[in-house]
Design a protein around this nucleic acid. Structure first.
Lengths: 158, 158
DNA sequence: GACATCGTACTCGGATACTAGATGTCCGAGTGCTCAGGG
DNA sequence: CCCTGAGCACTCGGACATCTAGTATCCGAGTACGATGTC
């Protein structure tokens, strides 16, 4: 899995604490000491997926496009890592004996079904957790986190 | 995910129908028109993982090392794709404000927890399905499959 | 005729190239602020 | 003093290198069969 997924999730949580202000890729990257240009690339992907909105120019930056409750972890994974399943059925059964060239072995093959089923539970789990859930849990553990984040962003403004 | 996982699973199911005879990588590859040497590499990985046993020389080949009921799909995924989770927590929080260098953010980070939880359900699902389960299901749908496979192997003996 | 030994053919095993995708970087496109100039 | 417009500084956006890991291949190690020669 793409490493940018982790960056994107943390950045989205931080953005949920930015109280509506646009935050630049530069500051988001400085927060965790990440390469700015590469993080920017991931943020672009989130923007294309409709998770973030972006504004160019001075006072520009990124912010969440919708309520954090409506942004699931799956949304982020799909945006960064693509919609394809990890297990790709290449339909090798079509080369085997008694194969039906018209059949869709992605659906018919029992192994493909089992793998798809497992990935489905995985995705359901990720779809059931939103950025807001993550934020709430973090706040429960360390209530000062949002303020710390805002202060950090303020200090990075120099 | 490594493409060899699919090959390995189909080959294990076929081996479960080989009635104890060793099958060469050459024949297993010819079955689905796969590159022999590369499939051999995957079979080696299965052997190292203790899923298959291998014998060199004439009348050599591969066979299942244990009862198909005790070979889960997860075993195969781990053998081919490695034991690492897809999501690797790089502990970027250690670069953030108020970080504790001694803490293990793989365990502490809420995002890491959520991702690990999702992958856990995924692995549980795969661990609950054995090669024997797959075989049974295939036989239920097409009872002639094992015989077809044995015949195919016999015809490939030339 | 029977046995032992050598040779041979066949298969697994790991070391070695090749290639695609992830990682990382750079420059152009777009936008709001600032400041100068004129009314 | 206020308004207008051009310049500028800053940021996003996508095109361009680099590098790891998956893909593919080849040759050596190991083993059983069979042929051959001898007793």
């Amino acid at each position: 899995m793409n490493e940018g997924v982790e960056w994107a999730m943390h950045s989205c949580v931080n953005l949920s604490w930015a109280s509506g202000e646009a935050v630049t890729a530069k500051r988001l990257a400085a927060f965790y000491n990440l390469p700015t240009a590469y993080l920017n690339k991931q943020l672009q992907a989130l923007t294309r997926a409709g998770i973030l909105t972006s504004v160019s120019g001075p006072k520009g930056g990124f912010q969440l496009a919708r309520d954090p409750r409506n942004i699931s972890l799956l949304d982020i994974v799909v945006a960064i890592d693509g919609p394809d399943d990890a297990f790709r059925c290449m339909e090798i059964l079509k080369e085997g004996p008694g194969a039906d060239a018209r059949a869709d072995y992605t659906k018919v093959c029992v192994i493909s079904q089992a793998m798809r089923g497992a990935e489905l539970t995985y995705r359901r789990e990720l779809a059931s957790r939103s950025i807001a859930d993550i934020s709430d849990e973090v706040v429960r553990l360390t209530p000062a986190a949002p303020d710390n984040t805002r202060n950090r962003f303020a200090n990075l403004k120099s």
